[in-house]
Amino acid sequence: MPSAIEAIEALATGFATTFKHLFRRPITEPYPEYKRPLPERSRARIVLTRDPDGQERCVACYLCSAVCPVSCISMQSVEREDGRRYAAWFRINFARCIYCGLCEEACPTAAIQLTPDFEHCERDILKMVAEKDDLLVDHCGKDTAYNFYKYAGVSTDVGDKGTHVKEDKPVNVKSNMP
């Protein structure tokens, strides 16, 4: 018998709760009229950012495409005359992307970043396939200072051997000095 009373009490509580909700202000935000300001780190449209000196950050290392759980990133790396590695083409299929952010996490040069801009639906699915030109932006995104080639130790336009951050001058292999 006590259990029956408890059950009725529980039912009553439930009905009371939903009834009270009737008079609460709905939490719904009417989307196109009101656009909630999204946090900087919310994950939507992917962009390719640039170095502080304006060069493409992406070195086409394939890590984002490797880590992508839905395989929506593909690219081809090539070498520029000055030694920089970059993407000859870079393609993200947003129709397939699940905006998990693993690519951003994997990116060693802070090139690929997710932005809060989520409004990019298209009626033609091929328009959801973004190429490098669509992805490249002309700012640094969240990391405003990092320049991969200042640390990498390879010779590029950013610097020759021994001129990067925390590097000694190259060894003169033909010297006899210890």
């Binding site: 939903t18 909700h21 009737l22 609460r24 202000r25 709905p26 939490i27 719904t28 009417p30």
Partner: peptide
């Protein structure tokens, strides 16, 4: 139902 669940429902 929407209101019961603190939503707006179709509007």
């Amino acid at each position: 139902l929407g209101r019961l669940q603190v939503r707006l429902g179709p509007n």
